[in-house]
Amino acid sequence: MKKLMIVAAACALTAGSFAETAGFQLSLTPDIALQDRDTEIKGVSIGVWNENPGAQWQIGFVNGSTGDSKGFAWLPYLTFYNYAENFSGVHWAWVNNTSGKFVGWQSGIVNIAQEEFVGLQSAWVNYTAKMHGVQLGLVNYAKTVDEWAFQLGLVNIIEDNPWFSNLPGELAQGMIIANWSFGD
């Protein structure tokens, strides 16, 4: 019976290492982990530094997502950095950075959506290249707006807004307290 248990455990571990999808990830770094960094995680990732594609709840100091991922990345007050290529869901960390499209809610000290943001950004500093949604922070910046955007904070910049020429649909390139663009 003991040999059967050992063989079954070995088969389960071997099958898990060749699987393209797993339900659980445990990691110190992306290269020192239970699952390979290319394995899609559909479940929970716990670690010091997580980095996998998939639909997952990531609990760690640094959480990364590759490809088109979704989920919730957060460890209360201890997540320092969340990063992703394309992400849908919630990123809560001191710094959140998405290189592609982010859909959902980014919250922290600094939020960055390098290409496109749809949803809510709430932080001291919010930045996006293309925005559709709401930014709440001390400094809010959007290079361009898709359909509509609203910013509330100390400094609010929508770079492609004309200066007071399309009121009430658009306010200005830069404003204190509030700025918006409600498209065509």
Results as ranks from 00 to 15, higher is better:
residue 159 E to V: 09
residue 111 N to W: 07
residue 28 L to A: 14
residue 8 A to K: 09
residue 17 S to V: 07
residue 134 V to T: 13
residue 59 I to Y: 09
residue 20 E to A: 15
residue 178 A to V: 15
residue 162 P to N: 12
residue 161 N to W: 05
residue 87 F to R: 00
residue 140 N to A: 11
residue 17 S to L: 11
residue 108 G to N: 03
residue 153 G to M: 11
residue 66 T to H: 00
residue 17 S to I: 07
residue 167 L to D: 04
residue 139 V to H: 07
residue 121 Q to K: 08
residue 171 L to M: 06
residue 92 W to H: 13
residue 113 A to T: 06
residue 50 N to F: 01
residue 131 M to D: 09
residue 88 S to Q: 11
residue 51 E to L: 06
residue 17 S to E: 11
residue 46 I to Q: 01
residue 107 S to P: 00
residue 72 F to E: 01
residue 73 A to F: 11
residue 97 N to M: 04
residue 4 L to P: 02
residue 65 S to P: 01
residue 115 E to N: 14
residue 177 I to G: 01
residue 62 V to R: 12
residue 123 A to V: 09
residue 46 I to Y: 07
residue 25 Q to Y: 01
residue 61 F to I: 15
residue 169 G to D: 12
residue 53 P to R: 03
residue 39 T to M: 02
residue 54 G to H: 06
residue 135 Q to D: 01
residue 61 F to S: 12
residue 62 V to C: 04
residue 70 K to F: 08
residue 77 Y to I: 14
residue 120 L to G: 02
residue 170 E to Q: 13
residue 9 A to Q: 01
residue 110 V to P: 00
residue 76 P to D: 05
residue 13 L to C: 10
residue 114 Q to H: 14
residue 152 L to G: 08
residue 157 I to P: 00
residue 17 S to C: 13
residue 173 Q to V: 11
residue 85 E to R: 07
residue 132 H to Q: 15
residue 142 A to W: 10
residue 163 W to C: 03
residue 13 L to G: 05
residue 139 V to Q: 03
residue 17 S to F: 11
